[in-house]
Write a protein that binds this DNA or RNA. Sequence first.
DNA 1: ATTACTGTATTAATAATATAATACAGTATT
DNA 2: AATACTGTATTATATTATTAATACAGTAAT
Lengths: 133, 133
Amino acid sequence: MIKIDPTSFIPLYEQVQTGLRREIALGALKPGATLPSIRDLATALLINPNTVARAYGDLERDGLITTRKGRGCFVSEDSGTMPERDKIKRLDGLFEAAIQDARKAGADPSEIRRVFEDRLRSVFAEHGKRRTS
Amino acid sequence: MIKIDPTSFIPLYEQVQTGLRREIALGALKPGATLPSIRDLATALLINPNTVARAYGDLERDGLITTRKGRGCFVSEDSGTMPERDKIKRLDGLFEAAIQDARKAGADPSEIRRVFEDRLRSVFAEHGKRRTS
DNA sequence: ATTACTGTATTAATAATATAATACAGTATT
DNA sequence: AATACTGTATTATATTATTAATACAGTAAT
């Protein structure tokens, strides 16, 4: 099963998410498969059920899993339609290349992140706002 | 002069930073030029001087500007030595391409960000930890 | 030395985020 | 309907990040 590092600065729910994404992408969790229940996984990972619930919620929002109250959570049938899986693999490649280039150019992570976030915003223009004032 | 969006979820100091980086990269602020004083810029942008100070501090840490107590802040002489400027332009291009591809593939921003952060971490492996326990 | 500017440092208030405790609600089996 | 599982919602707490208030210190001109 997936593993998490409680001493990492990466939020637990993200670690859980990433782990599951990987298992789904790699086919270890096939379409239709039942995911471990929120409580079970939480117990196994020694974290709070809500933390797992959040990870599951994000995965559902992304269409990777579906959830049925009282029944459980299941890997989406179309999660293996490949577009998703291939997409992630391709994205991985794209960014790996860009980041490697950036590093070679002498850029540090925060600098790279800044450039990335800038581009992301300009490409997707118009997103979340806060502070209604 | 640069503009900021106080309703954005992006921190003010980052917006200031990004704006100045752009002006420097594009040559609107040439090497040796005097930047607006911290207080002046803060007043103009209707934000707290400390917020501008933080942005300036980050820029200095990155060698883009130099600061002389009591005198003011100046664009570094070597900020136009091109490595920095070209680097940013190249990075911009790299990520713009990757992000455009990702968008075309149907990925949403959070998904793209996730892939990016994953790759960033793996490329730069070994960084900050927290929670000494 | 006074004035009027510079940037800097300390500390406090606020907002955002991550995690947890706990109670709620649905489903299935008996 | 009772039990024992599911996921969900509400609320509280701790931590971190962001912004602000304020006092400090350097430079230069008068």
